[in-house]
Nucleic acid binder design. Structure first.
Lengths: 342, 342
DNA sequence: AGACAAGTTGGAAGCGCTTCCAATTCGAGT
DNA sequence: ACTCGAATTGGAAGCGCTTCCAACTTGTCT
């Protein structure tokens, strides 16, 4: 029964390569070679080893492997917060691509917490490289990462910095296109709800709107920055804008603001799009199901995650050396909140 | 300049504890004690060590730490797929709680891939414990985990199994409450779109609906399982149900189905809720913004993630030994898709 | 000034694995 | 049978850290 006992004991924690070696009557080096398929091992020996490994339910310890290999085979990703409808898609694309590249994904949400910086540092110690979404990390930490030569890619950063790879979604062209579409409907007075903000994405949209209207000889849009992203702030801002002297069009910085505006418009008895047109940005799921369905701009969130994973892999494997600056195309989605379309 | 060179070189990869020790003129044991605050170190020595560590930008290697400590300080979470509006919230709650407990979170999406099983095994080697959402893992892998005594909690599993902790959201009571509300509106003929399915959650809702109607002496609901969860299948099913002889109420297995039904109803010229009432389940963001706003049942996704993290921690630290069976309360959200409410 | 307990410190043994290197065994050709 | 290169194999040195244990310093109390 002592052998039985030994078995029981060894099951509490995964068996080690030593136990497999002993059971198969070989050295650990041979076990390693047999199991990972490097070096040559006589078929009979390999068979014995595989059998022993199976019996022991042996799974190599990632820690041992990583320590010896000097790599984690893991990627990190840092989100400013896990709320919002976007990050899920981004993460999906990222995880998928990472899995394909044989890497695990470690997620950190850098919600306002003071400890966020430490979490990011900890993360850095667990991965071969990381992507940072929306410039969550205060530049200090990012700078540290860069200085350490830790492979890093910035996804949709609030501010552009030199050095690391950067992946963004196109804003200017599609914002211009959206504005032109609205002008074509005959709309003339524009209000931009939700910006400018100091963040790159939204400010690029704002700037493109200003430009396009100017070129068309229309009055400049009225900017209405938000005092916060909470539900209350957004509704209050929408109410303030719509309650008196509403413009022809309310261009919103993103869908959630636009959806709130749709709500408020209904409350105030304003018909969309007859009395006022509304547009969003992102094309979240609710945009399609709202009433009226929301005209918006679709961002390739999933693809952004995927690109980030691939860019990071290139950085880690050293396939590419120069920094990457990728701008992914977006798509204007015309629905009925901007006008009736026959 | 040779010292400069050495510095440059050491920056390519994070410095080790040995370099810090050498620079501070002490042994590595002392460095370890000083940095992690265990054991006593003379203030002057500590200061020298901290300084050296700062200069070298020293971050202890997670691998070394974990290997020596015999723990990963990381939790895993497996999702069936990263799509859908739920998992984001679950992950948020999970990550938040895990961070509070000083653990990193590693995510795996077990999308149909054949390699999913391997990914889960790999994950198991990187974490101290893991939660599995929706019984993604085929029972074989879960069985393996249990056999290995790997701390595991099942979140909203499709099928209940013995052994591991299980956390679910309440279905029966709230489905009954929803049915009663619908009966109170005078609705008499019910169709259940999207089930039963063989999955526990949806089948519990179905069963509660059947029970409640039976108790009220109403006709039994008509079950309409879905042939798939793709957009096309859902719309086709909704169309088939609504095109001929629509019931008083269409109770849907979850919001996405209900939103599709709302769409189809509009296309067919059916007024909701006048001609037909529709309900969903989950309370996704779009449910609030749809027209009419969707009556549904809110699940505490975030809290589920949080509970899972805490349950897992208890398992890992051995704070609790008996298995956990937690059912989190849900909330019926009455909006206008089930009837006009004054 | 002397003796002890308490406070500090460094050495070394792991933790589980990969891989270099040297030693051993195998097979085929003569 | 005998030789020699090729195929196999095991030993051992790390990878970076924690922590036990023994050795060494302090400081204090007599």
């Amino acid at each position: 029964m002592s052998e039985q006992d030994a078995n029981d004991k060894s099951e509490h924690t995964s068996a080690t390569i030593y136990e497999v070696a002993r059971r198969a009557g070989v050295g650990i080096a041979t076990v390693s070679r047999a199991l990972r398929g490097t070096g040559s091992v006589r078929p009979a020996t390999r068979e014995r080893i595989l059998e022993a490994a199976r019996e022991l339910n042996f799974i190599p310890s990632r820690l041992g492997v990583s320590l010896a290999e000097g790599r984690h085979a893991a990627n990190g990703i840092v989100f400013p917060s896990l709320t919002g409808p976007y990050f899920g898609e981004v993460l999906l694309g990222y995880e998928e691509a990472a899995a394909e590249l044989k890497r695990s994904v470690i997620v950190v949400a850098a919600d306002g917490l003071d400890s966020a910086q430490d979490h990011i540092r900890d993360l850095a110690g667990r991965v071969d490289g990381m992507v940072i979404y929306g410039s969550t990390a205060e530049s200090e930490v990012v700078a540290e990462l860069i200085a350490e030569r830790k492979p890093t890619v910035l996804l949709s950063p609030r501010v552009l910095v030199d050095g690391p790879d950067v992946i963004t979604a196109e804003n200017t062209r599609s914002a211009g296109e959206l504005a032109e579409h609205l002008l074509a409907h005959g709309h003339r007075t524009f209000t931009f709800l939700g910006g400018p903000t100091g963040g790159r994405d939204i400010d690029e949209r704002w700037a493109a709107l200003v430009d396009t209207l100017a070129k068309a000889g229309a009055a400049a849009p009225r900017p209405v920055p938000l005092s916060g992203y909470g539900r209350a702030e957004v509704y209050a801002a929408a109410r303030a804008v719509l309650a008196q002297d509403p413009p022809d069009v309310l261009v919103c910085s993103h869908d959630e603001v636009a959806l709130a505006a749709l709500r408020v418009a209904r409350e105030l008895g304003l018909r969309v799009p007859d009395d006022i047109a509304v547009t969003g940005w992102d094309d979240v799921m609710a945009a399609e199901h709202s009433w009226p369905p929301l005209t918006t701009v679709r961002q390739p969130m999933r693809r952004m995650g995927e690109m980030a994973a691939r860019a990071l892999d290139e950085l880690i494997t050293g396939t590419r050396t120069g920094p990457l600056r990728q701008v992914l195309p977006t798509e204007v989605i015309i629905r009925e909140s901007c006008a009736h379309h026959p």
